[in-house]
């Protein structure tokens, strides 16, 4: 089956098995291994990517169901200046340990901040309920999200803030 979609701003088209998951399409067909292969049952969130800006677990979506859609993976976050605010905040807060859950976490946070630029701790924990970390616990991850949100708000800036 021919699957054509946009990933991180680039168009891709490949002939694949019809029941291939989006996760396998990204990792095995395209070599985009930032998205992690975890539980394969939608529980751990390690394979989280954005489809049309919304977070999905790519292990439970067929590649053909993403036909014509815009997919964003962790590889698509990096800016010309380096890591984006969320990635940088995970590093500076020590919000990673083995790092396996981190790409999925970061993608869920990206989705959260796009719709809620000022999340509180409860909202952050709810947004990350589907992303399991078995190393660090979640305190530093929550700290990283709070910092990333603050930095993104100040980077975007409001006219009033610019004047002051």
């Amino acid at each position: 089956m021919r699957v054509a979609l946009e990933i991180n701003g680039d168009d891709y088209a490949r002939d694949v098995e019809p029941d291939l998951t989006l996760l396998s399409f990204l990792r095995d067909v395209l070599g985009l291994t930032g998205t992690k292969w975890g539980c394969l049952t939608g529980d751990c969130g390690a394979c989280t990517v954005l489809v049309d800006g919304k977070p999905v677990v790519s292990c439970l979506q067929l590649a053909c169901q993403a036909q014509g859609r815009e997919v964003t993976t962790v590889e698509g976050l990096e800016t010309p200046g380096g890591l984006d605010e969320v990635q940088a905040a995970f590093v500076s807060n020590g919000a990673t340990q083995c790092g396996f859950c981190t790409p999925g976490m970061v993608m869920s946070v990206e989705a959260l901040l796009r719709t809620n630029p000022s999340p509180n701790e409860a909202e952050i924990r709810e947004a990350l309920a589907g992303n399991l970390c078995r190393c660090t616990g979640y305190s530093k991850i929550v700290d990283a999200v709070l910092q990333a949100a603050a930095e993104r708000r100040s980077a975007v800036g409001s006219p009033a803030a610019d004047v002051s």
Binding site: G45, V56, L60, S108, A111, L112, A129, G130
Partner: peptide, 9 residues
């Protein structure tokens, strides 16, 4: 129900 990701799908 589930997680944000599951509810989105």
């Amino acid at each position: 129900l589930g997680s944000v990701q599951i509810r989105t799908m």
